[in-house]
């Protein structure tokens, strides 16, 4: 996407510069068919159609499709902390640390107890908002075990800059241990 944008930008700049070249005769250089219909209409429409198709296809792929493997967790934002719950261990609740298994799809049900927040773990997925009165579901997946940095990405007043959390992706063994309450 970036490269394509760079090319288009370069094209426009070159055309702009060429306008300054010394010319003997300016006559029909300004042809509506070339400039408006060709460059103005046809060219962007072709590029944008491709881009749109690409975006929609990727969007379909990111949808939380049903799968047996899915782990369900809950994330509730509340001015300056996130608390997490786990469908597999009903009484478990963690504060500011979300535990997930690595290499398995995880559906996060995002809710809020007060204002709008947004759940964002940049390396695992895009962001999704926590809206009062609603539950939004985000599919995330960590390929490798490890610690991932997460932030609240909707402005929520003072303290917003420190409003962050951590996601720990466990390998299969650790995840079992977590489910059996061995890890805190």
């Amino acid at each position: 996407m970036l490269a394509g944008a760079g090319l288009i930008f370069a094209l426009v700049m070159v055309l702009l510069l060429l306008a300054f070249r010394p010319r003997a005769d300016v006559g029909d250089a300004g042809d509506v068919r070339v400039w408006v219909i060709g460059l103005g209409l046809a060219f962007p429409m072709a590029v944008l159609a491709a881009l749109l198709a690409y975006g929609l296809v990727i969007g379909e792929k990111l949808l939380p499709l049903a799968s047996d493997d899915v782990v369900r967790v809950g994330a509730q934002g509340r001015l300056s902390t996130w608390s997490f719950t786990y469908a597999d261990v009903p009484n478990r609740r963690t504060q500011d640390v979300l535990h997930i298994p690595a290499a398995r799809p995880v559906d996060v049900s995002i809710t809020t107890a007060d204002v709008i927040h947004s759940f964002w773990v940049p390396r695992l997925a895009g962001k999704l908002d926590a809206i009062p009165g609603r539950t939004n579901i985000l599919r995330i997946e960590a390929d490798l075990p490890g610690t991932y940095h997460g932030v609240s990405a909707e402005f929520s007043g003072t303290g917003y800059d420190h409003f962050t959390f951590t996601v720990i992706a466990h390998d299969a063994e650790d995840w079992d241990a977590f489910l059996n309450e061995d890890i805190e």
């Binding site: 400039w35 460059l39 103005g40």
Partner: peptide, 28 residues
Amino acid sequence: FSAASTLVAVPTGVQIFAWIGTMWKGRP
């Protein structure tokens, strides 16, 4: 809305290229 948002770039493109065409037509 994603589709509509890409489409809005087309009339913008028409204006940009019409302006560059104007520059080609004249002597900037």
